[in-house]
Design a protein around this nucleic acid. Structure first.
Length: 567
RNA sequence: CGGGGCGUAGCGCAGCCUGGUAGCGCACCUGCUUGGGGUGCAGGGGGUCGCCAGUUCAAAUCUGGCCGUCCCGACCA
């Protein structure tokens, strides 16, 4: 490709609306442009990178026995109503009506549609297993799109679905996909970790996320420093020392005017935060209130509460609901005498001498004791969000460290959630109808592109991993007005193209400094500079973007050398 | 949805407080110059100042509403 025919509008200044490295650099390098909030154009260079990620994903999936299909972006409401997600998915699901006033949505994921395919056309266990995937633009009307491609509303995603008769086979496929995902992200040149994950609203029972490690990541993940255990923080179980056991004492109520937060009340009463019972009220999607209790110095993992309470979604109760449930304004809730489904973290089991809200305005209780004052109808589960330094729940020896990650892929074992809701069955060998066992597997293609930039850039621009770079080699003729330089650059360009090396030649009539800056910004791995001084000695300069290493190579051997390096 | 910021030329910004002919840098066009890390000089084109209403002799500037966008929070296969 000649630079003069390429649309690559590079910018000197960071765009004012960009925060993260990938957002700034992808815009500056002329790869993407924002069209609307969370919606982007991909310009030629950006599209090339996107295609590279796609190609790797396709190759690995096809090699793993998956088949590519393409499902519609616009999906009929009926399918979503059948699975129940039309009502559960919330505003993230962009709904629209056609001219006949029929309801549709823009598909944010395709479990319903793919299950519909399978139930219509697969009748027999002999037709299984199948693993179907698509690479398609998705739309989710995110509450808060941000960070450029990292959390867009419209984005490119690979979503795949597996169908088996036997659960054991389905689980084997899950582990198979887990391996394939590792190969895909390895080939992309990314540093990542596969971590155990919450299954969230999509349901199912087993899930891993593939997290690209980067400071700017939106997710927190914990990893043991002794064993291989790693998990999303919302899922990770951590071992914590139990609270210093206080002596049992009589329950009494104390006047705590306007002391609402644990921090306030702890200071007011002169008690450690760990002596408090934090009481949080939520409302399930069906309106049922759910109460969570955690120790005052701990944070609640909503994902764990969601799992424990069997909720598809949970929302923190608003002030009005809190008053209705506790009879007190926000800030004075406590478990004593509270009705409803109550879940308490293990750390509260056997607690004594604790403090909590009294369910009365400006009042707290002290001397609270598990068993005596609360706990009769309380379910004790793990609700606490792990923190750095917690003991590892898996090996029992290591400690947790916390890392930031960008979720680029996730695999789920779904079981029969969708096949049951939508009646997807096959006849087994005995002629019995049985529900199909499903798995689903996603990769954020455009997000992977952004994650690569987050992980690999410097002050001057992007440093593309070889496998994702828009071109393998960039040729920079120092001057377009020097015939010998132009001839040599052109010859090399043609040799490389003939050898199948993706090559960009910067044939703009610009100063060399301009070309060097743009080359660094765009981030092609290999740069060949051809100038009159070098040509006099029969050499050109080869510069490696990733480490800045520079070497002179004979012009005559340049094509062969570059082909070797680019392979 | 709650809180905050911003909206002036393609990009980055000043001007707004204190109303009076719309400016700077980059980019772009022309000429010369320069040619191994964003050359230098000279000339030039380009803006209904987000939109609508109001106040005023006069609004980029003051007031109200709306829209867009960014950040924080709630949320998130």
């Amino acid at each position: 490709m000649r630079f003069t025919s390429l649309l690559a509008p590079t910018l000197k200044d960071d765009p004012a609306d960009a925060e993260t490295a990938s957002h700034k650099l992808l815009v500056r390098a002329g790869m993407i442009r924002q069209v609307a909030r969370g919606i982007y154009d991909f310009l030629p260079l950006g599209l090339r990178v996107l295609r590279r990620v796609e190609a790797i994903v396709r190759q690995e999936l096809d090699a793993a026995g998956c088949q590519e299909i393409l499902m519609p972006l616009v999906c009929p409401a009926e399918l979503w109503q059948e699975s129940g997600r039309w009502d559960l998915y919330g505003k993230e699901l962009l709904r629209l009506r056609d001219r006949q006033d029929r309801e549709f949505c823009l598909g944010p994921t395709h479990e319903e549609v793919v299950t519909d395919i399978v139930r219509r056309d697969i009748r027999s266990y002999r037709d299984l297993p199948k693993n179907l995937y698509q690479i398609q633009t998705k739309f989710r009307d995110e509450i808060r799109p941000r960070f450029g491609l990292m959390r867009g509303r419209e984005f490119l995603m690979k979503d795949g679905y597996s169908f088996h008769v036997a659960r054991a086979d389905a689980e084997r496929e899950y582990h198979h996909m887990y391996e394939v995902y590792g190969r895909i992200f390895d080939r992309c040149g990314l540093t990542f970790r596969a971590v155990e994950a919450d299954t969230g609203a999509i349901g199912g029972s087993l899930s891993h996320e593939f997290q690209v490690l980067a400071e700017s990541g939106e997710d927190a993940i914990v990893a043991c420093n002794r064993c291989t255990y790693a998990a999303n923080i919302e899922k990770a179980e951590g071992v914590v020392d139990s609270a210093p056991s206080a002596t049992s004492r009589a329950r009494e109520s104390v006047h705590t005017p306007d002391q609402r937060t644990i921090e306030d009340v702890a200071r007011f009463l002169g008690l450690p935060e760990s002596a408090f019972i934090k009481t949080l009220l939520f409302v399930r999607e069906d309106g049922l209130p759910v109460v969570a209790l955690v120790r005052g110095d701990h944070s609640l993992s909503e994902a764990k509460l969601r799992a424990a309470s069997g909720a598809a979604t949970l929302a923190l109760a608003d002030a009005e609901t809190v008053e209705r449930l506790t009879g007190a304004p926000v800030g004075f809730a406590g478990p004593v005498g509270l009705e409803g489904r109550i879940f308490a973290d293990h750390a509260l089991h056997g607690i004594r001498g604790a403090a909590c809200g009294a369910n009365r305005a400006d009042t707290h209780l002290v001397g609270i004791e598990h068993g005596r004052d609360f706990g009769g109808d309380t379910t004790f589960v793990d609700l606490r969000q792990a923190v750095a330094g917690d003991g590892c729940a898996r090996c029992g020896e290591g400690k947790y460290g916390i890392h930031r990650g960008i979720e680029v892929g996730q695999v789920f074992y779904l079981g029969t959630k969708y096949s049951a809701a939508m009646g997807a069955t096959v006849l087994d060998a005995a002629g019995q109808a049985c529900l199909i066992e499903m798995g689903c597997y996603g990769i954020g293609i455009s997000r992977t592109m952004a994650a690569a930039v987050e992980q690999s850039h410097d002050q001057n621009g992007i440093i593309w991993p070889k496998a994702l770079a828009p071109f393998a080699v960039e040729i920079v003729p120092v001057s377009m007005r020097d015939e010998a330089v132009c001839a040599a650059a052109d010859a090399l360009y043609h040799d490389l193209r003939a050898a199948g090396v993706d090559t960009l030649i910067d044939d703009r009539d610009d100063r060399p400094g301009v070309k060097f800056k743009d080359a660094d910004l765009i981030g092609i791995p290999l740069r060949v500079t051809i100038g009159s001084k070098g040509l006099e000695r029969g050499v050109v300069e080869l510069r490696h973007r990733h480490d800045g290493a520079v070497e002179d190579i004979p012009l005559a051997a340049a094509a062969a050398r570059l082909r070797e390096l680019a392979a």
